[in-house]
């Protein structure tokens, strides 16, 4: 994919020097971010999820919060809680880590379902109500959650209904040999990341988000292409449940973002097609007999059967 948008190209080329071999992950993270969604990264620990989150936050001039999930994590640990203030004789609200622009939620599947659903609700509503008071989240608000794919005791895998709240689900994967060699030679650049200057301001980020939402044209032809894909997943023999309506919105939003990244002001079918493997599989509920096989492959083969509108 070629980035034709100057701002986006600047961001990506700048961050690439810090994130060796994570260009795809970076690209999809940014697409999710700019289409106002949330990202789920399913990967093993130690592959650079945190680095990615820090890099995005710093380069865009945003604040970063981090939540490390454990089984005894409580919803209030995320949202914050009121503490009695002796001097003022009143309860003061102490904001939790969720009140940041970018929130990294590590190993979300280790949190209890109660905590998970509290978090996911905030993600969806972009606001939280505590003790009768409603607090709006910061803008922009972007959650990067990670989960460990290898099954372990004491984890609570996210149910499909919750997965649907993530706009994209990606995996970073191991870096290439050459990239790792470079990391070995020069060491981790994590520390440097904290000191980088933002390339764009918060306001610019918000303006880009708005532009993507409003200015990118999506033709009826392309919309019906999306609906064709959705229908295919709903009728596929592999699936119990297809893409939800929220899923459709996510597909079109990410497609718009990709179009913007490519310097276009309209969506082409490739915008949908290329992102399909990240936007669709986690939203579809597979029948048990297909659950073990590669979900991505099944979805791709479904998409590959839909004729492109011309």
């Amino acid at each position: 994919m070629i980035f034709k948008n100057q701002t986006i190209e600047n961001i990506i080329s700048f961050l690439s020097s810090y994130l060796h071999g994570k260009s795809n992950a970076l690209k999809f993270s940014l697409i999710t971010f700019f289409s106002k969604g949330h990202l789920l990264i399913e990967d093993l620990p130690g592959l650079g999820k945190t680095t990615l989150a820090i890099a995005i936050a710093k380069s865009l001039g945003l604040e970063l919060g981090r939540i490390q999930c454990t089984s005894d994590l409580l919803p209030s640990d995320i949202t914050g809680l009121s503490v009695y203030n002796k001097t003022s004789a009143a309860f003061d609200f102490h904001k939790g880590p969720i009140f940041n622009n970018i929130v990294l939620v590590d190993e979300i599947n280790r949190a209890t379902p109660k905590t998970q659903s509290a978090l996911l609700e905030v993600m969806g509503e972009k606001q939280v109500t505590i003790e009768g008071k409603t607090y709006k989240m910061n803008k922009p608000f972007f959650v990067i959650a990670t989960q460990n794919p290898i099954e372990q005791f004491g984890t609570f895998p996210l149910p499909e209904s919750q997965l649907d709240r993530f706009m994209m689900k990606i995996s970073i994967g191991y870096a290439s040999r050459s990239a790792e060699m470079q990391i070995l030679q020069s060491g981790s650049k994590r520390d440097e990341l904290y000191s980088i200057q933002p390339i764009v301001s918060k306001d610019e980020v918000l303006a880009i988000q708005q532009e993507i939402k409003e200015k990118i044209y999506i033709s009826e032809k392309v919309l019906s292409y999306i609906l064709d894909i959705v229908e295919a997943t709903r009728n596929a023999k592999h699936c119990l449940g297809g893409i939800s309506t929220r899923g459709i919105l996510a597909i079109s939003a990410t497609a718009k973002a990709r179009a913007y990244f490519s310097g276009r002001d309209f969506v082409i079918p490739e915008d949908i097609k290329e992102l399909a493997e990240y936007t669709i599989p986690h939203r579809v509920i597979f029948k048990e007999e297909y659950d073990t096989s590669s979900k991505k492959e099944i979805i791709l083969s479904l998409v590959e059967k839909i004729p492109v509108p011309i």
């Binding site: 044209y217 033709s219 009826e220 032809k221 392309v222 276009r264 002001d265 309209f266 969506v267 082409i268 011309i310």
Partner: peptide, 11 residues
């Protein structure tokens, strides 16, 4: 293709 698409997909 890009020129053509700018007509096709912008209706």
């Amino acid at each position: 293709i890009q020129t053509f698409e700018s007509y096709l997909y912008k209706d």
